[in-house]
Design a binder for these strands. Sequence first.
DNA 1: GAAACTTGAATGGTCATTCAAAAAACTGTT
DNA 2: AACAGTTTTTTGAATGACCATTCAAGTTTC
Lengths: 191, 191
Amino acid sequence: MSRKRIRDIRNEELIEATIVAVHKRGYGVVTMAEIAREAGASAASINYYFGSKEGLMEATMLHLLGKLRRAMSEGYATARTPRERLYAVMDANFADGLFTVPQCSIWMQFWANAPYSPRLSRLHRINRARVRSHFLAELRALLPADRVETARQALQCYMDGVWLQAAQSEEALDPDEARAAAHRVVDLVIP
Amino acid sequence: MSRKRIRDIRNEELIEATIVAVHKRGYGVVTMAEIAREAGASAASINYYFGSKEGLMEATMLHLLGKLRRAMSEGYATARTPRERLYAVMDANFADGLFTVPQCSIWMQFWANAPYSPRLSRLHRINRARVRSHFLAELRALLPADRVETARQALQCYMDGVWLQAAQSEEALDPDEARAAAHRVVDLVIP
DNA sequence: GAAACTTGAATGGTCATTCAAAAAACTGTT
DNA sequence: AACAGTTTTTTGAATGACCATTCAAGTTTC
């Protein structure tokens, strides 16, 4: 019981520190020592919990994917029409707790590094496929079959593109505005 | 004269090798020795030409930006209507010589690393601003003022998103198909 | 023969990971 | 409550590997 809780607390602390440290210094450059300092721990203890730097990175990515998945489930629960569910997918990606510069930045770094790490690339594929199938399901209810695929590409690439831009931002992001803009794009694509 | 030419030839060879090597191994992990091997040269000679690893990376990025800028100018020369010019901006981004996995991959890497290098970040900002103003100029001729900004975001983020996906691709890309898809998205946004 | 180019080897530094030993947390016993 | 034993957690220091950059000595080009 308490054994498990300590480990979980440490895991979460270390993952939060990883997000901040990677954002500050960059995925390819950040060192274990820097992450450790951010967490107020030692580099050795990170290895004790995660085995290796790669293990830590994978755990961090899993943490973020989980957050995204949960945000999307919540939105789906209350949405009633296909268009509302389309909004919900967008809203999840631009949710308050997710659409911040450090997290978009991390996501960028993971995307850029996924092709070189089978584990990251697997996570990336799974997530993309999930978003894709959500989009397709709703779009099929709203558009003639021959326009579904184009609309899906437009919306999914839009989402990726917004994150890509957000990662470069020097000011804090405005999730409310991002969601509003996303809704406008949805309305533009599906009149 | 010949002095200059030899230097130019080496520069181009080394930059091509950099593109391939970064694509194969990743920006943060690739070593000077690997790039050198790819070019059939030695690590020391790269420093002779570019001064440092960072210098090489900046030169490589400049090279790619130049390619993109030229592709766009060419397209603009023959386009006659605002819509054609909009197509031309898209076509430049998905031109045969540009829309390849290694180059999209490099671009990803640069995007991800731009926030940590003032020089890269400067190049990135300039390029983005240029594309943005092209889009705005054409969209203003095609849409009522209050829809211009949403359409611009949709199109520009779409372009970024497509490259982001392309960088992850395991097969060769199909620039023809990418251009056709981009045209469909333009038509979706501007009926 | 001078200038431009090339490179193997040396240099100095950085970093992930390991390890042994200390510290802390927990356990059951008295 | 105090204590001895056990397990879990933490860390400083050591290890071993890797790498960008430099440089002196060669090679090629003009």
